[in-house]
Amino acid sequence: MKKFLPWLLIGGLLIIGIFWYIGVRNGAVTVNEQVKKSWGNVETSYQRRNDLIGNLVKTVKGAADFEKSTLEAVVNARAKATATTIDPSNITPEQLKAFNEAQSGVSSALSRLLVTVESYPDLKANQNFLKLQDELASTENQILTARTRFNEAVEEYNNYVLKMPRSIALSDYKEKAYFDAVAGAEKPVDVEFDFSK
């Protein structure tokens, strides 16, 4: 029996190692899928905003003398944002930056549109416009929540695949990028009120 003891120990350690490896790989699949799901939620939130913007533009077009350039800026920014896509299984900082810049363009154009609307009292009183404006505000909150949850999923993924000793077994899993704020977001907003109107 004593001569089989070393072989039993080696066999036991080998079986433990195999089960550990399988558990680590399965855990990596789980956290990777959580990142993909979270990214899908981010895209869904932005898609909802893009759909609402289309309806908002149609409503605003009804104002006869509304600034054409403002509407065109919103439509163009929306088109650029929908053209920017990311593969959630291979998210890089560069892809996220491009996506973030495209979405920032939509936010900026939309802000200009909503500020311009202030000069149109009939449009401001339009129930469809007011409802769309409320839905947009709600959607912006959903976007913030989805982005936050995406970053939480990325943090969990990165912690799982980068920490030792799992990183040895998961060398084919790479670090994923976080969703950062748009450049300049840390600066305070300059608000001006024009009481002469």
Results as ranks from 00 to 15, higher is better:
20 W>Q: 08
47 Q>M: 06
144 L>C: 10
6 P>T: 06
103 Q>F: 00
110 L>E: 03
105 G>N: 07
3 K>C: 10
132 L>G: 04
61 K>Q: 15
14 L>Q: 07
76 N>M: 02
119 S>H: 14
64 A>C: 00
186 E>T: 06
14 L>V: 13
15 I>N: 05
94 E>A: 15
36 K>C: 07
93 P>T: 07
82 T>N: 13
188 P>S: 05
38 S>N: 08
28 A>S: 04
42 V>R: 07
57 V>K: 02
6 P>S: 03
84 T>P: 08
127 Q>I: 08
175 E>I: 04
169 A>M: 06
167 S>H: 03
91 I>A: 06
176 K>M: 12
133 Q>M: 04
140 E>N: 12
146 A>V: 10
78 R>A: 07
182 V>N: 01
196 S>V: 03
18 I>T: 13
67 E>F: 05
87 D>K: 04
154 V>T: 01
106 V>W: 04
156 E>D: 12
147 R>F: 08
25 R>E: 13
25 R>F: 11
75 V>R: 03
107 S>G: 14
91 I>T: 10
142 Q>H: 14
99 F>R: 13
70 T>V: 15
121 P>A: 11
50 N>L: 11
148 T>E: 00
142 Q>Y: 14
89 S>V: 15
193 F>P: 00
132 L>H: 03
40 G>N: 09
158 N>I: 05
70 T>W: 02
35 V>K: 01
159 N>E: 01
92 T>Q: 06
67 E>I: 08
98 A>Y: 00
84 T>V: 13
88 P>G: 11
150 F>K: 03
141 N>G: 14
73 A>C: 02
151 N>I: 05
129 F>L: 00
39 W>L: 15
184 G>V: 06
19 F>D: 03
194 D>M: 01
104 S>I: 03
173 Y>G: 05
58 K>T: 12
112 R>M: 09
192 E>Q: 15
111 S>D: 01
184 G>W: 07
16 I>K: 02
106 V>H: 02
121 P>S: 08
146 A>F: 09
61 K>D: 11
17 G>L: 06
74 V>F: 00
85 T>Y: 01
26 N>K: 09
114 L>Y: 01
49 R>F: 07
52 L>C: 10
179 F>D: 08
195 F>E: 00
158 N>R: 08
44 T>D: 14
48 R>T: 12
85 T>F: 00
106 V>S: 04
68 K>N: 14
121 P>F: 13
23 G>T: 06
86 I>Q: 10
32 N>Y: 04
93 P>Q: 13
13 L>P: 03
117 V>S: 09
155 E>G: 08
108 S>D: 10
120 Y>D: 06
151 N>V: 08
155 E>W: 03
182 V>Y: 01
53 I>C: 02
186 E>P: 02
98 A>H: 08
10 I>V: 15
104 S>V: 00
1 M>D: 14
53 I>R: 04
35 V>C: 04
102 A>S: 15
69 S>M: 09
51 D>Q: 09
7 W>N: 06
129 F>S: 02
1 M>F: 09
164 M>W: 11
104 S>A: 15
66 F>D: 08
